[in-house]
Design a protein around this nucleic acid. Structure first.
Lengths: 154, 154
DNA sequence: AGGCGGTAGTTCGTCCCACGAATTTTGTTA
DNA sequence: TAACAAAATTCGTGGGACGAACTACCGCCT
């Protein structure tokens, strides 16, 4: 709860407020692509590969029943598709349709652009420092990979 | 979109993923206090002072009609109260009830604790650096004050 | 084989959230 | 005072989240 006397914001407040900011940017970008935030997230996760419902639930932090609805709606919009799992006839593999893949790509790219723009006033070294510190928070606290790395090639 | 070769996460991904993390922590804390995330936010904003509906809408980034519902539900739970504005009989001032103030305090404190805990592996200087960088993002991008400073006394 | 416990997903009912359009009431101003 | 603007609410629609109950299937164990 420590707070310094000068005009500086505290760490906690900085985290919370930047969170709201990123959230708003993400939601705005989704909206402009005709997506809800959740649907946008779903598309981003599926960009990497198809997933089963349970895996998706774990990744997105949603209950099974919540996911059924989300996939239903996204499927109804033609962005995603349920396919039977050849190994296990109980299971389902959710994958992007071609329209979904295209939209996911556009959404992802544009969202990255906007978020990167938030640090437009930063020097490269500062951007790097920020990435390192936030990266530690993320790894220290075990966040599931909900947003792909910008350049997953390596 | 720049990505370095080593195991380091990119700035954009770091921002997005830490955002999800903070969000989850916030929502979890709210949940355990019997609140939704939105209601928790409302309480936190009102900790500082009562607000009119329009101001609240602007602060929280919500449409007027969305706010009516949120305040309705929170009022129904006895945490918040609409009082007529003495200056303007169209307007309404939303304020915490005593129960609401108590709960807001508990929620706020506990939430801060948990978020601070996310940086438990940080040296003080690192925590400070993080605060400065995120603080710049926040001020550069004009976020409304949606989460009070940890120590508003001064 | 046959049975049985666990797993994958869906359905259902409930509540919360967000929005726009239309409406009411009140203040303001020309 | 008549017109206009502002503060809220209402209403209808759709998305989102959850838990509990349910179906279908897998694998295993005897």
């Amino acid at each position: 709860m420590s707070e310094h006397v000068d005009g500086q914001i505290g760490t906690v407040a900085a985290l919370v407020r930047s969170t709201f900011l990123v959230n708003a940017v993400y939601a705005g970008s989704a909206r402009e692509h005709g997506l809800t935030q959740q649907q946008g997230q779903l598309l981003c996760v599926l960009m990497a590969q198809p997933y089963g419902m349970s895996e998706l639930g774990a990744t997105l932090g949603l209950a099974k029943s919540s996911l059924t609805g989300l996939v239903d709606r996204t499927e109804r919009n033609g962005l995603v598709q349920r396919k039977p799992d050849p190994q296990d006839s109980r299971a389902v593999r959710v994958a992007l349709t071609s329209r979904g893949a295209k939209l996911a790509d556009e959404f992802y790219t544009e969202t990255c652009r906007r978020i990167e723009e938030m640090t437009s006033g930063f020097a490269p070294a500062e951007r790097d420092t920020l990435a390192v510190l936030l990266g530690r928070i993320v790894t220290d606290n075990k966040v599931p990979t909900v947003f792909m790395e910008p350049d997953p090639v390596r």
